[in-house]
């Protein structure tokens, strides 16, 4: 691992964003829209759904946390797509850069995007709904860190698929994460899922984080158990997905796909 190579990749993306308003807007657009639309719907429903305690708190908290995961995933996948669109993969993979350095650079981009989006969403929630995400308290940080890692896992997974199947698979960058949404139990507890789906959801680290969030907000239980599961699953899945990325790179080099991709 060489820091200068990782920084070269990060700087390359910062150059890109510095000059591109649409790219900057894209970071905020969906989180902002989500928050505005769903936030007001939540307020409206809350008037009639008074039997669900803390409905607004649950829903808005879940919305903000979910968008952090989403941005984290996008940070990885979009950074890769930028190289694909720029037909820059050949320059990178013929340099001394290692695939792992490439991934770390995208992870740094992902953390930057999540940070910026979190600040904006937290501010908007305060402004529009007088909602303060910090009520989650000391658990907020471990929750967010875990969701960021889950975002990386989905991001690296998606990136590998796009690398393997080419630009036609590019829609996955925006759609893949929504395949994970139902089994992340973002807006409802895991127990509402049918048993067979619960078993799948259980293997998803994000589901444990959202369970933990509800435990904290409902003051019903300690989230420590949920967090332990999330950390373990994140660790295992991250190693697996990075290994798979390396295998995909090897496959692409074997098939000569790295140099064809992006046309």
């Amino acid at each position: 691992m060489k820091l200068h190579r990782i920084m070269a990749l990060v700087v390359r993306h910062l150059y890109l964003y510095r000059r591109s308003l649409p790219r900057i807007m894209e970071i905020f657009y969906w989180p902002f829209l989500d928050l505005v639309i769903w936030g007001f719907i939540t307020l409206y429903l809350a008037r009639y759904q008074s039997q669900v305690p803390g409905f607004v708190t649950f829903f808005l908290g879940a919305l903000i946390l979910w968008d952090m995961l989403f941005r984290s995933q996008q940070g990885i996948t979009i950074s890769f797509l930028e190289e694909l669109w720029a037909r820059n993969l050949m320059n990178l993979f013929a340099s001394p850069m290692k695939p792992g350095e490439f991934l770390i650079a995208t992870m740094i981009m992902s953390v930057m995007k999540v940070t910026v989006v979190s600040i904006v969403m937290t501010g908007c929630a305060l402004l529009f709904y007088s909602y303060n995400i910090l009520i989650i308290g000391v658990w907020l940080m471990p929750f967010v860190l875990n969701l960021v890692v889950t975002g990386w896992i989905i991001g690296v997974f998606t990136t590998s698929l796009i690398m393997r199947f080419g630009q036609e698979a590019e829609v996955l960058a925006w759609s893949m994460v929504f395949l994970f949404q139902p089994i992340s139990c973002v807006f409802y507890p895991m127990e509402v899922l049918p048993t067979w789906l619960q078993m799948i959801a259980w293997a998803n680290p994000a589901a444990h984080i959202f369970e933990g969030m509800r435990a904290v907000l409902g003051e019903s239980a300690s989230p420590v158990g949920d967090l332990v599961w999330a950390v373990c699953l994140n660790g295992v899945l991250l190693v697996m997905v990075v290994a798979w990325f390396y295998r995909t790179v090897a496959y692409c080099k074997d098939q000569g796909l790295l140099v064809r991709v992006g046309e």
Binding site: A8, V11, N88, N91, S95
Partner: peptide, 21 residues
Amino acid sequence: LSMPQSLTVEENLWVVGRLYG
């Protein structure tokens, strides 16, 4: 060969230079 289209010529050279340390 292509290089990132949205960067300036000089920025592209700087990125390559850093990449090779």
